[in-house]
């Protein structure tokens, strides 16, 4: 019988194989509990991975295409240099658009540090120009040279310097999240194997009797495998639902897009946690089957 047939036989149910092993309350509850907790944790690891994934994509996308030019010059020259820089940008290949930030925008950028009523006009603050690149991007070294000729006070900040480590960190977090899911799966397999081994040891006499009356290993194993698979699936389902509820009750992301508050699922990503119980059941199926066949193989 192939693995697939066995899974089908398991799902279609064979009550008789189930009945021959006596019910065991305590280990059953422990298996349920462990599966529930592990799936609950897996929901968070999944949320973390997907959220940091989104973050990495967004940062990568937005930051890669936005640069800033800062013009520091004596107040009487700022206007002229800004216009000169904008002219240079207009004729630069790879620049999609460029515009000088208005006084209001600059004020709102400074507001978090100086309060809302800063007299921006009275301060010697530099003028900022936002540059949006085309998908091809521009040659930043060439642009710097041209800017230094036309507007000596202009400094190009193409964001790559601080963008790269952030995107790398977000990607690393995403990888760690997926690694956590794998580790949670492994830990669950280990726990279920231990529980299955305990159940097999506790039922040594049952196994002996079944063997005596001509039960094949497959039949004996199925009695245990089915039980642990169903228990794990049930526990995982409860753990997943609790995890989703917990995620739903997280405060939603604020406008600032705080990383912590952005933890959660969006749109189709809600389908991912639904995959966890079947995967947990599959892990339980394989772990118990391996444990059962190994224990049975050691018997005479």
């Amino acid at each position: 019988m192939s693995l697939r047939d066995q899974i089908m036989a398991l799902l279609s149910g064979d009550g008789s194989a189930d009945r021959v092993v006596p019910p065991s309350g305590f280990t059953a509850h422990l298996t349920l509990f462990a599966a529930g907790v592990m799936t609950f944790l897996a929901v968070f690891a999944l949320a973390l991975s997907l959220a940091t994934g989104r973050l990495a994509d967004r940062w990568g996308d937005e930051l890669a295409r936005a640069s800033t030019i800062r013009i520091s010059a004596p107040p009487d020259q700022i206007q002229a240099q800004t216009e000169a820089a904008l002219r240079v940008l207009d004729t630069t290949e790879g620049v999609s658009s460029a515009r000088a930030l208005t006084t209001d925008e600059q004020r709102s950028l400074l507001a978090p540090w100086f309060g809302a009523n800063v007299p921006v006009e009275a301060l010697p603050i530099p003028q900022l120009i936002e540059v949006i690149e085309t998908s091809d991007g521009f040659d930043s070294a060439g642009l710097r040279l041209r800017l230094s000729a036309e507007a000596p006070g202009a400094v190009l900040d193409d964001h790559t310097r601080w963008r790269r480590p952030l995107v790398a960190a977000a990607n690393r977090l995403r990888a760690l999240g997926f690694l956590s899911i794998l580790l949670i799966g492994g830990a669950m397999a280990a726990m279920i194997t231990l529980a299955a081994n305990a159940a097999l040891a506790a039922n040594a006499q049952v196994i002996e009797v079944l063997r005596l009356v001509g039960a094949e290993d497959r039949y004996i194993a199925r009695a245990f495998v089915r039980r642990f698979t169903l228990r794990t699936a049930t526990g995982a389902l409860v753990g997943m639902l609790l995890g989703i509820v917990a995620i739903l009750f997280l405060p939603s992301a604020q406008e600032e897009g705080g990383f912590l508050t952005g933890l959660g699922f969006q749109g189709g990503q809600w389908l991912w946690p639904i995959l966890l119980p079947p995967v947990a059941a599959l892990v339980a199926f394989l772990a118990t089957r391996r444990a059962a066949l190994r224990v049975l193989g050691d018997l005479t």
């Binding site: 005596l212 001509g214 094949e216």
Partner: peptide
């Protein structure tokens, strides 16, 4: 092992 199991169905113990 399964051959043995099948033989046990023909030998009552």
């Amino acid at each position: 092992r399964d051959d043995i199991a099948l033989v046990r169905r023909r030998i009552g113990v």
